[in-house]
């Protein structure tokens, strides 16, 4: 078995999601090579070389890879990937953008969002917003899959000593161009990696109230902040905070849902959390069916009281 893992990074640092993908690769078993495609990304390759379990790092350094444009990166992955039995990437927006394109270039089917490795070619993945779990067997010569990070414990970022090897760029495909980026800055832990997540829904009422009520709780707990689709659509918070089938998938130790009813769409993104707390004024809210503890009350009084008592 030879596995190619596509590194997720911002040209400066390796993203933690890659460590979960390496963990999934170890479950498959075999030689693990990490591909770093970027621009001025030597530091990322050096970090990847230290990751436990990695035997080789390939660095493709070219301006064409600076912003992870799918048209350019997929071309590279397909040209390198044919020699491997598996090609894996994280189920992030980058992984989901690039990998299906690479799979099609290799003329193989792909498996999205694997949550368990049952065998070298057999995997489990959620379908229907997590309401069913499918076991899928690939009959392809190259297994291409994205990995749901929260389903695999990250490997250690230190301890490895892989060699870094440069690989030639496949160039710019010339059909797409990066224009601009708007990244939301936050001092809080990253949503998908946080141990505690505090999320707000439509019930928080407004963007202002979201911050007035939930910021102190998140601060006190050192938690990341999330939101339901309703809160994002209402403009309370930016879209990158959305938890759900169509947003981010989280599985923290503690998930506190405040003013969230618990639509199927939202539950798909958080029901693997270890402990779920729901604070809602509606006794019948569907969120209560997945919550370990739920408290019926006005979030505007309950949450500040909670902050004062933790």
């Amino acid at each position: 078995m030879s596995i190619l893992v596509i590194a997720e990074h911002d040209n400066k640092a390796l993203n933690g999601a890659t460590l979960n993908v390496v963990a999934a690769a170890q479950k498959i078993g075999g030689d693990i090579t990490v591909l770093v495609a970027g621009s001025g990304a030597q530091a990322v390759a050096d970090q990847a070389a230290k990751v436990a379990g990695v035997s080789k790092v390939l660095l493709a350094d070219d301006a064409a890879y600076a912003n992870q444009l799918a048209e350019n990166v997929a071309k590279l992955v397909a040209s390198i990937g044919a020699g491997y039995t598996h090609i894996l990437a994280a189920s992030t927006t980058t992984g989901k953008n690039v990998l299906p394109r690479a799979a099609a270039l290799l003329d193989v089917s792909m498996i999205t969002d694997i949550i368990a490795v049952e065998g070298p070619k057999t995997f489990k993945r959620p379908i229907y917003a997590g309401n069913a779990i499918a076991t899928v067997e690939s009959g392809e010569s190259v297994v291409v899959a994205t990995v749901r990070g929260t389903a695999f414990d990250a490997v250690a970022s230190e301890g490895g000593s892989a060699a870094v090897e440069a690989v030639a760029s496949t160039g710019d495909a010339g059909i797409s161009k990066f224009v601009s980026e708007e990244i939301v800055k936050s001092e809080r832990p990253e949503l998908t990696a946080a141990r505690i997540v505090v999320s707000g829904g439509r019930g928080v009422g407004s963007g202002e109230n979201y911050h007035t009520v939930l910021d102190p709780l998140a601060d006190k707990l050192g938690a990341a902040q999330g939101a339901s689709r309703a809160a994002v659509d209402a403009g309370f918070v930016p879209n990158d905070m959305q938890v759900g089938q169509t947003g981010k998938i989280v599985a923290p130790d503690l998930y506190i849902a405040v003013g969230i009813s618990g639509a199927i769409q939202h539950l798909a993104g958080m029901k693997e959390s270890k402990v779920i707390v729901a604070i809602n004024k509606d006794e019948e809210a569907p969120i209560n069916t997945v919550a370990d503890y739920w408290l019926v009350g006005d979030l505007n009084t309950v949450v500040p009281e909670l902050v004062s008592k933790i």
């Binding site: 498996i111 057999t122 069913a132 499918a134 392809e140 029901k271 503890y293 909670l306």
Partner: peptide, 26 residues
């Protein structure tokens, strides 16, 4: 070439409890 071997219901979460106060929750 992807074969669905089986489809299962996800693991059920064990039923939770309603707490009556913030103190009880904490």
């Amino acid at each position: 070439k992807l074969k669905t071997v089986k489809v299962e219901a996800p693991a059920e979460r064990k039923a939770g409890v309603q707490v009556k106060s913030v103190d009880e929750l904490v």
